[in-house]
Design a protein around this nucleic acid. Structure first.
Lengths: 348, 348
DNA sequence: TTCCGCTGTGAGAGCGCTCTCTGAACCCTC
DNA sequence: GAGGGTTCAGAGAGCGCTCTCACAGCGGAA
């Protein structure tokens, strides 16, 4: 399909991968023998250590390319105590994996770590498995996404001083590296847009208010309406699910609203049919802004104006922070907060 | 080996604040010393080799649990030449990763391999990376999803006799293990449903006809209409994309249809608004059946009656076939075809 | 010259595990 | 009781790599 991939294959295709699978693979030892140097010198060349004579380096490099040598990662891991792999931990297989958000994380992480020769290992949030994987040196660190308030895993990893990065601000403050979007700023973006579109009778369907995201989005929304001197908006708590959005919307159909901020696109997809069935036209009667810019936002009717998190960028940053922490565990934790943007579609 | 080394383990932490990560983990050697047996015996217990005396086994097991021993996978890999990891190869990061299908594959694979202690490594279809990973013994085998007709990777892996499983029937017949759904049967299911709902003037929006899925779904559809003695249905080729679905639908608005089979849900989400704008009510005027049962099917309006592939089951089967092949590379390739089901929603 | 420091190379000791091979201990049969 | 067979534990040799340490070689200072 993509010419890029194909062209890259054409030239670089190794002289048959067969050789290495059927036969015993080439070892450092063998390269050393061919180059007429010691194993140590080949190792230096492979690992880019500077203290190798230029000519000798070239001889070694030639031997490497003619033999098609690739280092055995297990052997290297054994001595370096590095797995060369990081884990992406999913809370449970049932939900998150199906969330398009997950795919965006993956496509943000891969381009960062692959050039470093680091693998991305997918694993469930099963506590024991994650810890085991790290203890067995199968994982150098982990990215945790969608952890729940009650999940002891983050704290335990922190206490064990294991490299870990969270995909969101932790529920309770702790000394942990995380990457997040400025949730409140995103909600403010939504509120500002509604207000500047002429809406005056606002409401919001929030996320679960025990989550940081739920809290922050509500706060950003309310702060903005207050700043504009608008009356207290209607607030209905949702749970980030489609059904939760539908249920919340039922409380809003008779409120005479002209603007609604729904704290997640998924909830919005649940809410829209309810609103429509109640005779409210979106956006003519009621303008609706979502949050996440997930695929439901594109697919629903009308397509949703929504707050976009730069998930790929955030994921890439998580990968960078994690790799950095693996390399230098002593460095202080640092977190990064990204700015959201508003994506204009047809619902507001 | 030398007692000196071991005493370093038990003793106080080295100068400076050393993290848990850096603390030397328990080794076989140490468990053996505590249990008063040899390393070999502990290894036997760990690996479940039967020829260990019951009492001795219990002593060893106790030593393992008190020390919290976990085998170092790198060391094991080095000698067994097994990575204990399989790869899930995505064609490119841009598309598939965002496809909910991908998540379903992951959640089908994980429950199969995690109990076996096998890791799931996510990687892009970049040819060199995949081959490198396998050559470096970082991957025991791979599951390829969404390979294109021009992709040389499957054939190369086959020729190199590397364990590989395809997530679909290969474009050109080859001696390769694959798992697929019976595409034609799925299309027949859709056609049967439309016909038994009273539709007589049928059409289909197909997938790209150079793909096996595109071909088979069309064939299954046409075979069924023929069997029922209906007139030749209208056939418009699509490309499995939302836009392709919309484009194809434009050719169908004036055809006086009462039944439409769209060969993918995503295309259906593109087609539905076009049909609605043309004044066709779904399902009153025109019944529509999709294919895939992906999330768009749920989210679109009206929710789509569609053909469901048992993706999780299929993925689990892929994992099983792959693991099996890794264990016994000499066994003949065998493929598995799953039966699709019809999911009734509101569009037909 | 002698000594020092510096650069760059090789030798060799492991990393933690598996697995073969040896041999002790025991049981059976004649 | 001897011979043979069977069972099961231990010794030891690696797997392929990294990394420390010793040291050769060389230029320059004393």
């Amino acid at each position: 399909m993509t010419p890029l991939v194909r062209s890259r294959l054409g030239g670089a295709a190794p002289p048959g991968i067969k050789a290495d699978v059927d036969r015993r693979p080439v070892t450092l030892e063998e390269v050393a023998r061919i180059a007429g140097v010691s194993r140590a010198t080949v190792s230096r060349v492979v690992n880019g250590v500077a203290t190798v004579d230029r000519e000798l380096r070239q001889v070694v490099e030639k031997a490497i390319s003619t033999t098609g040598y690739t280092p055995n990662r297990a052997a290297r891991s054994l001595v370096t105590r590095r797995a060369g792999a990081i884990g992406l931990v999913l809370p449970d297989e049932g939900r998150t994996v199906h969330d398009p958000y997950f795919g965006r994380v993956v496509s943000g992480v891969l381009p960062v770590i692959r050039p470093l020769g680091v693998q991305l290992v997918l694993t469930t949030g099963d506590h024991r498995e994650v810890v085991d994987d790290i203890r067995q040196h199968r994982l150098d660190g982990v990215i945790l996404i969608h952890t729940h308030a009650t999940d002891p895993l983050p704290r335990q990893l922190i206490e064990a001083n294991l490299p870990v990065v969270l995909a969101a601000r932790p529920v309770r403050p702790m000394s942990i590296t995380y990457v997040d979007v400025d949730q409140a700023a995103g909600a403010a973006l939504a509120a500002d847009h509604l207000i500047s579109s002429g809406c005056r009778r606002l409401a919001t369907i929030t996320g679960p208010l025990e989550t940081p995201a739920g809290q922050d989005r509500l706060r950003g929304f309310l702060d903005t309406t207050t700043r504009h001197g608008l009356p207290e908006p209607l607030v209905v708590e949702g749970d980030f699910s489609r059904e939760g959005g539908a249920e919340a919307a039922r409380h809003l159909t008779d409120a005479g609203l002209d603007g609604l901020f729904v704290a997640s696109d998924l909830m919005a997809t649940g809410a829209l049919p309810i609103l429509r069935n109640a005779g409210l036209r979106v956006p003519e009667d009621l303008k609706v802004v979502g949050f996440d810019d997930s695929s439901p936002a594109v697919e629903c009717d009308p397509p949703l104006t929504t707050v976009r998190q730069p998930v790929e960028d955030m994921a890439a940053e998580m990968a960078r922070l994690l790799v950095d922490r693996v390399d230098r565990p002593d460095r202080p934790v640092s977190s990064v907060v990204f700015a959201p943007t508003l994506v204009l579609r047809e619902s507001a």
